[in-house]
Write a protein that binds this DNA or RNA. Structure first.
Lengths: 276, 276
DNA sequence: AGGATTTTGGAATATTTGTTCCACAGGGTC
DNA sequence: GACCCTGTGGAACAAATATTCCAAAATCCT
C-alpha cells in the first residue's frame, strides 16, 4: 500500500509512537498555553481521531489557535494533518480504497501484476479485519455445536462454494463425518438431514436462495445451524443458531476469500480436534 | 464528556447496539442505493467515527446524498448526528492489528481463537511471499495463453479443488467459456479437450495423479497448459507450457490458500479483461 | 402503454471546521 | 520608563464537509 500522503514534512512524526516521543521530548520549557495543550493531548491521545480543534481547545482550556500552533510545534502542518495520522492509525490502510479502484480502471488497464498487488492488499486487509472483529463467543459456540453433532452438512453455493468444499476437505481429512452439499443432479437433499446432525451454511450477498432454503429446512427439522456470512443483517441469521460473520474486503467484483477461508479452516480444525 | 445533545428525535437510536438492530430490521425491501449504504455501514460500523460522508459514500459506491438519506432513514437527522453517536462511543480498544493478534494467540493453544490467529498469520505471510516472489513474465504469458484460447479447462482436485472452483466461478462471471473438471461420475473427460482450448491445472504436493494425467493428456493433444503449483520442481512442470508457482505457508497440516487464491483470481480477472 | 410514485444524482447552498494573521499583553532588559 | 521579544486571543478568512432540493430516471401500478 503506497503512501497516499506524499508530501510529508521532514521531521513530521509518522506513527503514534513517534508523536508520543516527541511529546515527551518537547514537554519542558514550554510556554503556558502550549504546555496546557501538551498535557491535554498527552492524556487524550486516543480521542484526537474523533475530535475537532474546538473540542481539544475546550478540553485544554486554550483558544483554538493555540492548538494549531501546538500541532505545528510537533512537526505537523496543522491539526488536520495530525488528525489524519490518528485516523489512519486506527486501522491501517483504509481510505483511498475507492480511489485505487478508480486508478486501476483508468490506468494502464490493470496489468496482471497490478491486479495481483490489489488482491494481495485486499486479502491482507481482510485478514486484519478478521483479527479485529472476530466474535470469540460465537466461534466457541460454533465449535461446540459442530463437535457435538452427528454428521455435519456443509452447504455453500456460488462464491461460497470454494469455502464449503475446502471445509469439507479438511473435515474429511480430520475424519469428521461431513457431507458437502452441492447442486449436482439437482437432488432434493433435505431428507438427508437426520436428527442430531448439524448444518454449516455459508453464503454472502447476494445470498443464494438454495443455501437459505436448505438452512431453513435444517432449522425446521430441529438441526443446529451454524451460519457463516458477511453481516449480522444477513438473511441467514433467521435460520442460524450461531452466526459467524467475516467481512471480506473485495476488490472489484470479486472477494479474496482469505479471511473467510482462514476462519473456516480454523473452525474445521478446532472441530476436528474437539471430536477426538 | 457529558451529553450535551438534548433534543433527540423520537425514534433516533441512542446506542451503537440500537443502530445495529435498526440496521438489521431495516435491511430488507430497501432500494438499491440505500441497501448499498446499509451493507457498507454494517460492515464498517467501526469506521464511522473517523470517516466523512464522502468517505462512506465512496466506500459504498453511492453519492453522498444517498448516505445522508440513509442516515435519516435510520432515524438520525443527518450524518453528523449519527457520527456524534459513534464518536461518543469511540474508544479505540487499540484495534492495532499486531496487538489484537497477540490477544487472539494468548488463548490456550489449541483454542479456536488461537487457531484463527495462526491461520491469519499464515495467510498474511503467504501473501507477502507471493508479493515478493511472483514471476511477472510467467504471469503475463499465462494471461496471454488463456486469453487466446477457446474453452479453458480448469482442473484441480483435493486441496486444489477450492481454488479451481473459485477460478471457474470467476471466469464464468466474466463470461469466459470455462469448464471445471471435477471427478463427479468418474467420467473420462479427456475427449472434451478440443484443439484451440487451453488447460489450467492446479496441484500441490502430494500431487494428484488425476490432475497430472489430465494435464499430460491435454499437452499430448496439443493444448496449451498453464500450471499453478507449489514449486518449479513439481511434476506438473513436465506438462505445463507456463508454470506459476506460489508458496503457501501452512499451519499444521492445512494451508491457508490465501496466496493461491489471490493469484488465481488475479489471473482470472486479467484473462477476463483481456478477452473483451 | 401511460400515469403515478419512488428513487437517484448532482449542483447549489449552508454549516462547520481549520488556519492565518495581526494587534496587543506581559515580562524581561537596559 | 521605553524598548524589545515572545506569547496570546480572537476576528477574518479559507477550506472542508454536510445538507437540501429539484430535475431526471427508474420503477411500479393499473
Amino acid at each position: 500500500m503506497p503512501n497516499d500522503h506524499p508530501p510529508a514534512n521532514p521531521g513530521e512524526p509518522t506513527t503514534v509512537e513517534a508523536v508520543r516521543e516527541r511529546l515527551v521530548a518537547v514537554t519542558g520549557g514550554l510556554p503556558k498555553r502550549l504546555r496546557q495543550c501538551a498535557d491535554y493531548v498527552a492524556q487524550n491521545l486516543d480521542r484526537i481521531a474523533v475530535s475537532t480543534v474546538a473540542d481539544i481547545a475546550a478540553g485544554a482550556d486554550v483558544p483554538p489557535s493555540a492548538v494549531i500552533r501546538f500541532c505545528q510545534l510537533l512537526g505537523f502542518s496543522g491539526y488536520s494533518d495530525m488528525q489524519r495520522l490518528f485516523r489512519d492509525a486506527y486501522s491501517p490502510g483504509w481510505p483511498n480504497y475507492a480511489t485505487r479502484l478508480e486508478n486501476l480502471k483508468s490506468g494502464p488497464s490493470g496489468s496482471p501484476r497490478a491486479m495481483v498487488a490489489e488482491f494481495i492488499e485486499a486479502g491482507r486487509m481482510s485478514l486484519e479485519k478478521l483479527a479485529q472483529s472476530l466474535d470469540d463467543a460465537a466461534l466457541e459456540q460454533a465449535v461446540a455445536t459442530l463437535a457435538g453433532a452427528g454428521t455435519i452438512h456443509v452447504v455453500g453455493f456460488r462464491r461460497a462454494y470454494p469455502v464449503a468444499s475446502y471445509l469439507a476437505y479438511v473435515l474429511a481429512k480430520m475424519e469428521v463425518p461431513a457431507i458437502l452439499h452441492h447442486g449436482a443432479g439437482h437432488l432434493d437433499q433435505r431428507f438427508a438431514l437426520r436428527p442430531g446432525d448439524a448444518m454449516l451454511a455459508i453464503t454472502f450477498a447476494p445470498y443464494s436462495d438454495e443455501t437459505l432454503a436448505l438452512a431453513a429446512a435444517a432449522r425446521a427439522a430441529g438441526l443446529a445451524v451454524v451460519g457463516l456470512t458477511d453481516t449480522a443483517a444477513s438473511p441467514l441469521s433467521r435460520s442460524a443458531n450461531t452466526l459467524l460473520t467475516v467481512t471480506e474486503v473485495d476488490f472489484g467484483a470479486f472477494r479474496s476469500l482469505s479471511a473467510t477461508i482462514a476462519l473456516a479452516i480454523s473452525l474445521a480444525v478446532a472441530v476436528g480436534t474437539a471430536r477426538r
